[in-house]
Every structure is written in C-alpha cells, then in structure tokens.
C-alpha cells in the first residue's frame, strides 16, 4: 500500500497526487513512469513521473476512464494498492542549444521534467502549450518559472491564441531559425502533426508514446510500437522515442482496440 500524501486539483479533469514510494523515488529521472493499481483487482495503468521530492513521487492524471476516475475519488491520507517504478528509459537529453516543447492536454505533465533538464543543461527553452479552453491549461506557473518563452493556444480562444498548437509552432519555427530540437507530448494525433512539421523544418523531434501497457517490464508485448518498420516495446525501449519514423497511425489503432471494453468498465463505475 502506498500513501497519498497530498492531492491537488489542477482543473476539473486533471489532478496531481503526491505519493509516498521510496523505491520509485530513489532512481527516478525525467521520462520515467510508474504503473499503479488503485485497488486490488484493479487495472495496471501507466502514468509519467511528474516530479520527485525525497520519498515522494508526483503524478498528474487526467480522469478519462474507469481507473483514472477511481484514482480521482481517493483523497490525501488514502492509499493506492500498487505503485511500481521507475519504469522505461530516462528521456534522452540531447545536446541542443534551443529547444521548443509542445504540450497537449495532460502531456504537459511529462514534458515539465524534460524541459527542466534542458534548462539545467543550459539550453534556451520555449513552450507551446495547448488545451480546449483556459480552464484546462495546467502547470503554467511551473513552466513560466523555467521557460524563456511560453505560448498558449486554446481551441476556443479563451486564453492565448485561438487555434491548434501546430499553428503556433509553425509561426514560432518561422521566427526562430535557431531552434534545433522539438519535443512533443500529448495526444497521438497531435504528436503526429508536430512530427510532420518538425521534419518539414528539418528539426530533430522527440515524442513520448503511450500505448496500452500491462506489466511495464517487457513481458507482455502489449505496448509494441512500430518505428521505421521495426518493433519496439515502449515500456523498456521507450516511452520516449525519436518521432521521425514512428508509425503514429498504428499506435492510434492499437490504443483503441479496447475502447468498447473500457467503456463498459466505466459504465459500471457510474452505477
């Protein structure tokens, strides 16, 4: 059992939790993730490590379906059944002097520790962060504290520019020829289009892939992704990969294989 030490609501869909887990905290680095089970008989779900302080591990989760909603019903002082990590390969921090991070929705959470690492390595760090509307933006203060420039986009124009992150990215790349590297974390469809754009502008691109996972230790093969025609296991080879050869369409298809079943679980929570 792992104790929830603190819980914070970031917006009506997204919470942050601080969980006591010394074995996860000890060796964690940016890009690593955990797998947790909210309760016995629960699903194993992967979540990125958003921060570490001593024995405490921060996770930021969007209440999308059964397991994340159930997690959202827990409060500080409660416990979760299982919490294992740090899993995956640590993010590869490249030798770039000017990087731009692109965050979509809850993808802002895994992006934050990576941008911090770039800042600490001495790079100029810009952020483009997008959400449906103002109330869905998260971690703005944390990003502003480390980024040289923060550009906001919302679908409805309630904050920042009205439009998609790719629109803002296009302008930003046009205006800043010195940008060497792009990192995109968010919905697969967003990472796909950011990757295409980065390739157009001849920038290197890293993405963070989120296929369905079970064990997270390379045992089940559920998390396989195709990159340049080769198969990789996102849980041990990733989750961060060079985006340029990722088969994003396959990933979207694989993520949706269990959609109907997930819906059925979710309905049960409501009744």
């Amino acid at each position: 059992m792992y104790k929830i030490v603190e819980k914070k609501t970031l917006n009506k869909e997204i919470d942050l939790m601080r969980i006591e887990a010394p074995l996860v905290a000890r060796n964690a680095q940016p890009g690593h993730f955990v797998i947790l089970r909210v309760e016995a008989e629960g699903e194993r779900i992967p979540l990125t490590i958003a921060g570490i302080e001593g024995n405490l591990v921060d996770i930021i989760y969007q209440k999308l379906g059964y397991s994340t909603k159930l997690l959202g019903e827990k409060e500080a002082g409660d416990t979760v059944e299982d919490f294992v990590g740090p899993l995956g390969k640590a993010a590869h921090i490249r030798d770039s002097k000017h990087v731009v991070g692109v965050a979509g929705g809850v993808g802002a959470a895994p992006l934050l520790p990576q941008l911090k690492a770039y800042k600490e390595a001495g790079a100029r760090v810009d952020l483009i962060i997008g959400a449906r509307s103002e109330s869905f933006l998260i971690l703005l203060d944390e990003f502003k504290a480390i980024c040289d420039e923060v550009i906001i986009t919302t679908d409805d124009g309630s904050a920042g520019l009205k439009g998609l992150v790719t629109d803002a990215l296009k302008h930003h790349l046009e205006d800043n020829a010195g940008i060497e590297h792009v990192i995109a974390i968010g919905p697969v469809i967003m990472m796909k289009y950011v990757t295409l754009m980065a390739k157009d502008y001849k920038k290197s691109i890293d993405v963070s892939l989120n296929p369905i996972m079970i064990d997270g230790t390379g045992m089940c093969g559920n998390c396989r992704v195709s990159i340049g025609g080769k198969t990789f296991f996102a849980c041990i080879d990733g989750p961060d990969f060079d985006g340029s050869d990722v088969d994003f369409d396959e990933l979207m298809q694989r993520q949706s294989y269990y959609k109907d079943e997930e819906h059925a679980c979710y309905l049960r929570l409501k009744t």
Partner: peptide, 25 residues
C-alpha cells in the same frame, strides 16, 4: 503474444470481469 493473453487472464483475472477491471477481447 501468449504472455499478454495469459497475463490478462491469469494475473489480471480478466475472465472474472466484472470484478476484475482488465478486459480480454
């Protein structure tokens, strides 16, 4: 892969849905 299939059924008890939350298709 057999590991995923068997893990879903044995370790995650997907055959016991609805008590278990991990599905098998």
């Amino acid at each position: 892969y057999a590991n995923e299939f068997l893990t879903r059924v044995n370790l995650m008890k997907s055959r016991a849905i609805p008590t278990s939350k991990t599905p098998i298709k």
